[in-house]
């Protein structure tokens, strides 16, 4: 099973605040059978201790160490907010990436995501696309092995 698939992507979403946005990213993981619903609570708790905003409109909410028990299968969800969600200070998140990982199978997806964060044009394309597969493919590119 791929780590990121079309069913884990939600386009054109709107949320009042980051709490709601994290819930959306978490619910995608729950619906796809990747995590138990308790994991979403872990994501919300983790965000309270430390922001997962990574820069350039991207946030990566995920659970805490203890929440690994609630992960059924490694998965990554993407919720796109074309209008942005206020995340911290003056920063808006346009892409909210929910992460649930048991081992390190998701290293490749996050390497792609790190590239996207460093290329404002890439991030913009993902924040505006109307094609979920565009996001899936961009984040599933093969990356250099170490």
């Amino acid at each position: 099973m791929s780590i990121i698939v079309k069913d884990l992507v939600r386009l054109n979403a709107q949320a009042a605040d980051k709490h709601e946005a994290i819930k959306m990213a978490g619910e995608l993981l729950v619906k796809a059978g990747r995590v138990k619903s308790a994991y979403v609570e872990g994501m919300l708790a983790r965000e309270k201790t430390m922001s997962t905003y990574m820069g350039n409109g991207v946030a990566i909410p995920h659970g805490e160490f203890e929440n690994r028990a609630d992960i059924i299968k490694t998965g990554i969800s993407v919720v796109q907010f074309p209008a942005g969600v206020a995340w911290e200070d003056d920063e808006l998140a346009y892409l909210v990436i929910g992460i649930a990982a048991t081992e390190n199978e998701h290293v490749g997806v996050l390497a792609n995501l790190a590239e996207v964060i460093e290329e404002p044009e890439d991030a913009e394309l993902l924040a505006r696309t109307t094609d979920a597969m565009f996001i899936v493919e961009r984040l599933s590119r093969p990356v250099e092995s170490e």
Binding site: R46, I60, H62, A100, V107, L113
Partner: peptide, 14 residues
């Protein structure tokens, strides 16, 4: 990082 699954991995990539 706390969980070792997200933030630290992104920072390591950078």
């Amino acid at each position: 990082c706390e969980a070792g699954m997200g933030s630290s991995l992104m920072a390591a990539n950078k």
